[in-house]
């Protein structure tokens, strides 16, 4: 007897006599080895995997590679380490992993039971196994069920995720708000401008560009830049009345639509106040950010009929004139300039 320490050696009268075929049903992946490691008998599922005549009479260690415990090079090792959990694979086929347990029989042989472990799904597919190839007590089929159910649920989640992603993109396309500053975005501005043109009420258009903003971004980083942009949004909003629209239309470009404004002097005063407000130093995490603003403006009352496109171009012209004039300026567009 090669019984491992701690495993009881059964007296012959305590041995269970099983008719041939019982092990086939109970453990369809069993192997019965002789004392010299030759396969004497095997379960039907192993027979199906290896093909007929490929198992019986062959040496176990010629067909299987025991990967753990380490150092299982001989049949004697198998006997010596019986009762330990074995990790093995088909010799030359490291992709087909098996686990198993080997215990001595009552006649100097060894009984090994094998299972696929986590490689079950691949094994079932490769060898076209069916329910009948597993013992009724084996949860293999339940595992296959779970794998398949998991796939189905995952697919459904992926579909839902794609749908939500699509909805998010659509929502973003329809959004009217600049997410960083909370101001209106280009889309909202275009709509407000079109509505203002369609209405009878006069209005003014103000294009505002930050000065030295790039320097803040470059020296103190994007977080500082974002902080400055939010600060700008607060200053601009402070100067506005209900009915006005403040939009961020580019990195550091803003457009303000002031409803009911007809007086260029009044418009300039508003612009001066904004420029003065934005020229104040802005604190950011112990640092001081300094920016300024240039403003170009135009009034709807100076056009025979309202054309949003033209007014935008003219406000831009005025803005560039302000920049050329040395920044921190506010210029009202005039057709004579």
């Amino acid at each position: 007897m090669h019984a491992a320490p701690g495993l009881p050696t059964l007296a012959p009268d305590r041995c269970l006599m099983l008719p041939a075929g019982v092990l086939d049903r109970l453990m369809p992946m069993y192997l019965h080895l002789s004392g010299d490691g030759t396969i004497l008998a095997h379960g039907p599922t192993l027979g199906k995997i290896f093909g007929p005549e490929r198992l019986t009479g062959h040496r176990f260690l010629d067909l299987f590679d025991v990967r753990s415990p380490a150092g299982m090079g001989s049949t004697a090792d198998l006997f010596a380490r019986q009762g330990q959990r074995l990790h093995l694979c088909l010799r030359g086929r490291t992709d087909v992993g098996l686990r198993g347990l080997a215990l001595a029989d009552a006649a100097a042989g060894l009984v090994l039971n094998l299972s696929f472990g986590i490689g079950l799904v691949d094994a079932v597919r490769q060898h076209a196994l069916t329910d009948a190839d597993f013992a009724p007590t084996d949860l293999a089929v339940e595992m296959l069920y779970l794998v398949e159910a998991k796939h189905a649920v995952l697919e459904e989640f992926q579909r839902l995720n794609r749908a939500l992603q699509g909805a998010k993109v659509a929502a973003e396309e329809q959004a009217l708000t600049d997410t960083l500053t909370g101001l209106r975005n280009r889309r909202a501005l275009d709509a407000a401008l079109a509505a203002a043109c369609a209405g009878r009420r006069a209005f003014a258009l103000m294009h505002l560009d930050l000065d030295y903003f790039k320097a803040v971004n470059d020296s103190l980083g994007h977080a500082a830049g974002d902080h400055v942009l939010r600060h700008v949004a607060r200053v601009l909003t402070r100067e506005m009345r209900a009915g006005d629209t403040v939009a961020r239309v580019g990195g550091d470009e803003f457009v303000i639509l002031l409803a009911g404004v007809t007086d260029p002097d009044h418009l300039s005063q508003v612009a001066e106040r904004i420029i003065a407000g934005l020229s104040q130093p802005i604190a950011y995490e112990g640092e001081v950010c300094r920016i300024g603003a240039s403003v170009g403006m135009t009034l709807s009352t100076t056009y025979p009929s309202c054309e949003a496109e033209q007014m935008s171009q003219d406000a831009d012209h005025a803005l560039y004139a302000a920049k050329r004039a040395g920044r921190a300026r506010a210029v009202v567009f005039s057709a004579h300039d």
């Binding site: 597919r125 196994l129 069916t130 296959l144 398949e148 796939h151």
Partner: peptide, 10 residues
């Protein structure tokens, strides 16, 4: 009914 036909690769 093929046991493993319903998962990826089958």
């Amino acid at each position: 009914f093929d046991l493993a036909a319903g998962v990826a690769g089958g």
